[in-house]
Protein backbone atom coordinates (compact mmCIF):
# COMPACT_ATOMS: atom_id res chain seq x y z
CA UNK A 1 0.00 0.00 0.00
CA UNK A 2 2.65 2.44 1.10
CA UNK A 3 4.91 1.51 -1.76
CA UNK A 4 2.18 2.07 -4.27
CA UNK A 5 1.54 5.53 -2.90
CA UNK A 6 5.20 6.44 -3.10
CA UNK A 7 5.34 5.24 -6.68
CA UNK A 8 2.37 7.44 -7.64
CA UNK A 9 3.94 10.48 -6.06
CA UNK A 10 7.20 9.97 -7.91
CA UNK A 11 5.41 9.95 -11.25
CA UNK A 12 3.52 13.05 -10.27
CA UNK A 13 6.66 14.97 -9.42
CA UNK A 14 8.14 14.20 -12.81
CA UNK A 15 4.95 15.36 -14.42
CA UNK A 16 4.81 18.52 -12.34
CA UNK A 17 8.37 19.35 -13.32
CA UNK A 18 7.51 18.99 -16.99
CA UNK A 19 4.55 21.29 -16.46
CA UNK A 20 6.66 23.85 -14.57
CA UNK A 21 6.89 26.42 -17.39
CA UNK A 22 3.11 26.28 -17.70
CA UNK A 23 2.65 26.88 -13.99
CA UNK A 24 5.09 29.77 -14.13
CA UNK A 25 3.26 31.54 -16.96
CA UNK A 26 -0.13 31.14 -15.29
CA UNK A 27 1.26 32.25 -11.92
CA UNK A 28 2.69 35.44 -13.40
CA UNK A 29 -0.63 36.24 -15.06
CA UNK A 30 -2.83 35.58 -12.05
CA UNK A 31 -0.45 37.34 -9.64
CA UNK A 32 -0.89 40.40 -11.78
CA UNK A 33 -4.67 40.00 -11.52
CA UNK A 34 -4.43 39.66 -7.74
CA UNK A 35 -2.09 42.65 -7.39
CA UNK A 36 -4.44 44.76 -9.50
CA UNK A 37 -7.60 43.87 -7.57
CA UNK A 38 -5.86 43.62 -4.22
CA UNK A 39 -4.17 46.98 -4.48
CA UNK A 40 -7.43 48.68 -5.43
CA UNK A 41 -9.13 47.00 -2.48
CA UNK A 42 -6.41 48.14 -0.06
CA UNK A 43 -6.35 51.60 -1.57
CA UNK A 44 -10.09 51.92 -1.01
CA UNK A 45 -9.43 51.56 2.74
CA UNK A 46 -6.52 54.03 2.82
CA UNK A 47 -6.38 57.80 2.72
CA UNK A 48 -5.58 59.65 -0.48
CA UNK A 49 -2.32 60.82 1.09
CA UNK A 50 -1.27 57.25 1.80
CA UNK A 51 -2.07 56.25 -1.78
CA UNK A 52 0.23 58.93 -3.12
CA UNK A 53 3.07 58.10 -0.76
CA UNK A 54 2.70 54.36 -1.51
CA UNK A 55 2.05 53.47 2.14
CA UNK A 56 -1.33 51.77 1.91
CA UNK A 57 -3.21 51.22 5.19
CA UNK A 58 -0.48 53.05 7.16
CA UNK A 59 -3.11 54.51 9.49
CA UNK A 60 -5.43 51.52 9.62
CA UNK A 61 -8.69 50.82 7.84
CA UNK A 62 -10.64 53.84 6.68
CA UNK A 63 -14.23 52.71 6.26
CA UNK A 64 -15.26 56.33 5.90
CA UNK A 65 -14.21 56.17 2.23
CA UNK A 66 -17.10 53.80 1.68
CA UNK A 67 -19.48 55.86 3.73
CA UNK A 68 -18.50 58.96 1.76
CA UNK A 69 -18.86 57.20 -1.60
CA UNK A 70 -22.12 55.50 -0.63
CA UNK A 71 -23.84 58.59 0.77
CA UNK A 72 -22.12 61.78 -0.39
CA UNK A 73 -21.41 60.67 -3.95
CA UNK A 74 -24.69 58.75 -4.00
CA UNK A 75 -23.30 55.39 -5.05
CA UNK A 76 -26.32 54.14 -3.12
CA UNK A 77 -28.62 55.66 -5.74
CA UNK A 78 -26.94 54.23 -8.83
CA UNK A 79 -26.50 50.91 -7.03
CA UNK A 80 -30.21 50.73 -6.25
CA UNK A 81 -31.08 51.71 -9.84
CA UNK A 82 -28.96 48.96 -11.32
CA UNK A 83 -30.27 46.43 -8.85
CA UNK A 84 -33.89 47.28 -9.70
CA UNK A 85 -33.20 47.25 -13.46
CA UNK A 86 -31.32 43.96 -13.35
CA UNK A 87 -33.80 42.11 -11.15
CA UNK A 88 -36.88 43.18 -13.12
CA UNK A 89 -35.24 42.68 -16.51
CA UNK A 90 -33.77 39.27 -15.60
CA UNK A 91 -37.09 37.94 -14.32
CA UNK A 92 -39.08 39.22 -17.30
CA UNK A 93 -36.47 37.85 -19.68
CA UNK A 94 -37.14 34.35 -18.38
CA UNK A 95 -40.91 34.78 -18.53
CA UNK A 96 -40.63 36.02 -22.14
CA UNK A 97 -37.82 33.85 -23.49
CA UNK A 98 -38.44 30.48 -21.84
CA UNK A 99 -41.80 29.90 -23.60
CA UNK A 100 -40.34 31.07 -26.91
CA UNK A 101 -37.28 28.86 -26.52
CA UNK A 102 -39.49 25.88 -25.62
CA UNK A 103 -41.71 26.29 -28.66
CA UNK A 104 -38.74 26.86 -30.98
CA UNK A 105 -36.94 23.75 -29.75
CA UNK A 106 -40.00 21.46 -29.61
CA UNK A 107 -42.33 22.18 -32.51
CA UNK A 108 -41.92 22.22 -36.27
CA UNK A 109 -43.80 25.10 -37.85
CA UNK A 110 -43.24 27.55 -40.71
CA UNK A 111 -40.93 30.38 -39.64
CA UNK A 112 -39.18 28.43 -36.89
CA UNK A 113 -35.81 28.37 -38.68
CA UNK A 114 -36.27 32.00 -39.72
CA UNK A 115 -36.81 33.18 -36.14
CA UNK A 116 -33.79 31.19 -34.95
CA UNK A 117 -31.59 32.62 -37.71
CA UNK A 118 -32.85 36.11 -36.86
CA UNK A 119 -31.98 35.71 -33.19
CA UNK A 120 -28.53 34.29 -33.91
CA UNK A 121 -27.72 37.09 -36.39
CA UNK A 122 -28.94 39.72 -33.94
CA UNK A 123 -26.19 38.65 -31.53
CA UNK A 124 -23.64 39.91 -34.04
CA UNK A 125 -25.33 43.22 -34.84
CA UNK A 126 -23.41 46.29 -33.57
CA UNK A 127 -25.50 48.44 -31.19
CA UNK A 128 -24.95 51.44 -33.47
CA UNK A 129 -27.35 49.80 -35.88
CA UNK A 130 -30.29 50.05 -33.50
CA UNK A 131 -29.84 53.12 -31.30
CA UNK A 132 -30.67 55.87 -33.80
CA UNK A 133 -34.20 54.79 -34.81
CA UNK A 134 -34.97 53.75 -31.23
CA UNK A 135 -33.88 57.15 -29.96
CA UNK A 136 -36.00 58.81 -32.64
CA UNK A 137 -39.15 56.92 -31.62
CA UNK A 138 -38.56 57.39 -27.93
CA UNK A 139 -37.86 61.11 -28.22
CA UNK A 140 -40.96 61.63 -30.38
CA UNK A 141 -43.15 59.86 -27.87
CA UNK A 142 -41.81 62.06 -25.07
CA UNK A 143 -40.80 59.02 -23.04
CA UNK A 144 -37.55 60.62 -21.94
CA UNK A 145 -39.32 63.51 -20.23
CA UNK A 146 -40.78 61.49 -17.39
CA UNK A 147 -38.71 59.62 -14.85
CA UNK A 148 -41.08 56.69 -14.60
CA UNK A 149 -41.51 56.11 -18.33
CA UNK A 150 -37.80 56.61 -18.90
CA UNK A 151 -36.98 54.01 -16.26
CA UNK A 152 -39.43 51.57 -17.81
CA UNK A 153 -37.90 52.24 -21.20
CA UNK A 154 -34.45 51.33 -19.88
CA UNK A 155 -35.78 48.04 -18.53
CA UNK A 156 -37.54 47.37 -21.84
CA UNK A 157 -34.31 47.95 -23.74
CA UNK A 158 -32.27 45.76 -21.40
CA UNK A 159 -34.83 43.03 -22.01
CA UNK A 160 -34.88 43.63 -25.76
CA UNK A 161 -31.15 43.46 -26.36
CA UNK A 162 -30.82 40.27 -24.30
CA UNK A 163 -33.77 38.39 -25.85
CA UNK A 164 -31.82 36.72 -28.71
CA UNK A 165 -29.06 35.42 -26.45
CA UNK A 166 -31.40 34.24 -23.69
CA UNK A 167 -33.72 32.44 -26.11
CA UNK A 168 -30.95 30.68 -28.01
CA UNK A 169 -29.28 29.67 -24.74
CA UNK A 170 -32.48 28.20 -23.29
CA UNK A 171 -33.29 26.38 -26.55
CA UNK A 172 -30.38 24.01 -26.06
CA UNK A 173 -31.66 23.20 -22.57
CA UNK A 174 -35.20 22.43 -23.66
CA UNK A 175 -33.84 20.48 -26.62
CA UNK A 176 -32.05 18.13 -24.23
CA UNK A 177 -35.14 17.30 -22.15
CA UNK A 178 -36.87 14.02 -22.93
CA UNK A 179 -40.20 14.10 -24.71
CA UNK A 180 -41.44 11.32 -22.45
CA UNK A 181 -42.49 13.89 -19.83
CA UNK A 182 -44.82 15.70 -22.19
CA UNK A 183 -46.23 12.42 -23.48
CA UNK A 184 -46.94 11.22 -19.96
CA UNK A 185 -48.56 14.54 -19.07
CA UNK A 186 -50.67 14.46 -22.25
CA UNK A 187 -51.89 10.94 -21.45
CA UNK A 188 -52.90 12.15 -18.00
CA UNK A 189 -54.89 14.91 -19.70
CA UNK A 190 -52.64 17.88 -18.94
CA UNK A 191 -52.95 20.61 -21.62
CA UNK A 192 -49.62 21.51 -23.34
CA UNK A 193 -49.50 25.04 -21.91
CA UNK A 194 -49.90 23.76 -18.38
CA UNK A 195 -47.34 21.02 -19.08
CA UNK A 196 -44.83 23.70 -19.98
CA UNK A 197 -45.28 25.89 -16.91
CA UNK A 198 -45.62 23.08 -14.38
CA UNK A 199 -43.30 20.39 -15.73
CA UNK A 200 -40.91 21.56 -18.43
CA UNK A 201 -39.97 24.99 -17.04
CA UNK A 202 -38.93 23.66 -13.61
CA UNK A 203 -36.85 20.99 -15.34
CA UNK A 204 -34.91 23.62 -17.29
CA UNK A 205 -33.94 25.27 -14.00
CA UNK A 206 -30.14 24.75 -14.35
CA UNK A 207 -30.22 26.52 -17.70
CA UNK A 208 -32.45 29.28 -16.37
CA UNK A 209 -30.08 29.93 -13.48
CA UNK A 210 -27.01 30.06 -15.73
CA UNK A 211 -28.60 32.36 -18.29
CA UNK A 212 -29.92 34.63 -15.53
CA UNK A 213 -26.41 35.00 -14.11
CA UNK A 214 -25.17 36.03 -17.55
CA UNK A 215 -28.05 38.42 -18.05
CA UNK A 216 -27.45 39.93 -14.63
CA UNK A 217 -23.76 40.49 -15.35
CA UNK A 218 -24.57 41.93 -18.79
CA UNK A 219 -27.20 44.32 -17.50
CA UNK A 220 -25.17 45.31 -14.46
CA UNK A 221 -22.21 46.21 -16.68
CA UNK A 222 -24.23 47.69 -19.58
CA UNK A 223 -22.97 51.11 -20.58
CA UNK A 224 -23.76 52.39 -24.08
CA UNK A 225 -27.56 52.00 -24.09
CA UNK A 226 -27.84 53.51 -20.61
CA UNK A 227 -25.59 56.41 -21.54
CA UNK A 228 -27.90 57.36 -24.39
CA UNK A 229 -31.31 56.55 -22.95
CA UNK A 230 -31.01 57.44 -19.25
CA UNK A 231 -32.03 61.06 -19.48
CA UNK A 232 -31.83 62.12 -15.85
CA UNK A 233 -29.23 61.70 -13.14
CA UNK A 234 -31.58 59.85 -10.84
CA UNK A 235 -32.06 57.08 -13.44
CA UNK A 236 -28.40 56.38 -14.07
CA UNK A 237 -27.32 52.78 -13.70
CA UNK A 238 -24.08 51.90 -12.01
CA UNK A 239 -21.69 51.92 -14.98
CA UNK A 240 -22.72 55.36 -16.23
CA UNK A 241 -22.94 56.74 -12.71
CA UNK A 242 -19.48 55.49 -11.87
CA UNK A 243 -18.08 57.11 -15.00
CA UNK A 244 -19.31 60.56 -14.10
CA UNK A 245 -18.35 60.04 -10.48
CA UNK A 246 -14.79 59.16 -11.44
CA UNK A 247 -14.60 62.27 -13.56
CA UNK A 248 -15.71 64.49 -10.71
CA UNK A 249 -13.54 62.73 -8.12
CA UNK A 250 -10.48 63.37 -10.26
CA UNK A 251 -11.12 67.06 -9.78
CA UNK A 252 -11.84 66.88 -6.07
CA UNK A 253 -8.73 64.72 -5.68
CA UNK A 254 -10.50 62.09 -3.60
CA UNK A 255 -8.65 59.03 -4.90
CA UNK A 256 -9.52 56.87 -1.90
CA UNK A 257 -13.21 57.59 -2.40
CA UNK A 258 -12.91 56.81 -6.08
CA UNK A 259 -11.36 53.41 -5.42
CA UNK A 260 -14.06 52.72 -2.85
CA UNK A 261 -16.68 53.46 -5.51
CA UNK A 262 -14.90 51.13 -7.95
CA UNK A 263 -14.93 48.35 -5.37
CA UNK A 264 -18.63 48.85 -4.65
CA UNK A 265 -19.37 48.61 -8.38
CA UNK A 266 -17.52 45.39 -9.05
CA UNK A 267 -18.42 43.70 -5.78
CA UNK A 268 -21.88 42.29 -6.75
CA UNK A 269 -20.67 40.52 -9.91
CA UNK A 270 -17.49 39.51 -8.11
CA UNK A 271 -19.38 37.86 -5.23
CA UNK A 272 -21.66 36.10 -7.71
CA UNK A 273 -18.56 34.87 -9.47
CA UNK A 274 -16.88 33.53 -6.33
CA UNK A 275 -19.87 31.31 -5.63
CA UNK A 276 -20.87 30.42 -9.17
CA UNK A 277 -17.67 30.52 -11.22
CA UNK A 278 -17.94 26.85 -12.24
CA UNK A 279 -21.48 27.36 -13.47
CA UNK A 280 -20.55 30.56 -15.29
CA UNK A 281 -17.53 28.99 -16.99
CA UNK A 282 -19.55 25.95 -18.03
CA UNK A 283 -22.18 28.33 -19.40
CA UNK A 284 -19.72 30.27 -21.56
CA UNK A 285 -18.76 27.20 -23.57
CA UNK A 286 -21.65 24.86 -22.96
CA UNK A 287 -24.94 26.45 -23.87
CA UNK A 288 -24.60 28.48 -27.00
CA UNK A 289 -22.16 31.26 -27.65
CA UNK A 290 -22.34 34.51 -25.75
CA UNK A 291 -22.82 37.62 -27.87
Amino acid sequence: MAREKKYREAVNWKKELRLFPGYLILLIWISFTFVLLGWVLLASFSTTKEIFSNKLLASGLHFENYVKAWINSDVAGIFRNSLVYSIIACSLLIVICAPAAYVLSRFIFPGNKLIQTGFVSAMGVPVVMIVLPLFGIVANLGILNHVLSNGMLLIFLYIGINIPYTTIFLMTFFGNLSRAFEEAAAIDGCPPTKTFWLIMLPMAQPGIITVTIFNFINIWNEYFISLIFANSDQLRPIAVGLYSMINSMKYTGDWAGMFAAVVIVFLPTFILYIFLSEKIIAGVTGGGVKG
Partner: peptide, 21 residues
Protein backbone atom coordinates in the same frame (compact mmCIF):
# COMPACT_ATOMS: atom_id res chain seq x y z
CA UNK B 1 -11.58 30.99 -12.89
CA UNK B 2 -9.01 33.70 -12.11
CA UNK B 3 -8.09 34.18 -15.77
CA UNK B 4 -11.75 34.59 -16.70
CA UNK B 5 -12.43 36.91 -13.74
CA UNK B 6 -11.79 40.26 -15.53
CA UNK B 7 -14.60 39.43 -17.97
CA UNK B 8 -17.26 39.71 -15.30
CA UNK B 9 -16.00 43.02 -13.91
CA UNK B 10 -17.66 46.18 -15.23
CA UNK B 11 -15.53 47.68 -18.00
CA UNK B 12 -15.77 51.09 -16.34
CA UNK B 13 -14.38 49.69 -13.08
CA UNK B 14 -11.66 47.70 -14.83
CA UNK B 15 -10.57 50.61 -17.01
CA UNK B 16 -10.47 52.85 -13.94
CA UNK B 17 -8.18 50.41 -12.15
CA UNK B 18 -5.79 50.47 -15.10
CA UNK B 19 -5.94 54.22 -15.62
CA UNK B 20 -5.75 55.32 -12.02
CA UNK B 21 -3.49 52.59 -10.67
Amino acid sequence: AVIYLPNIVSAVALATMWLQY
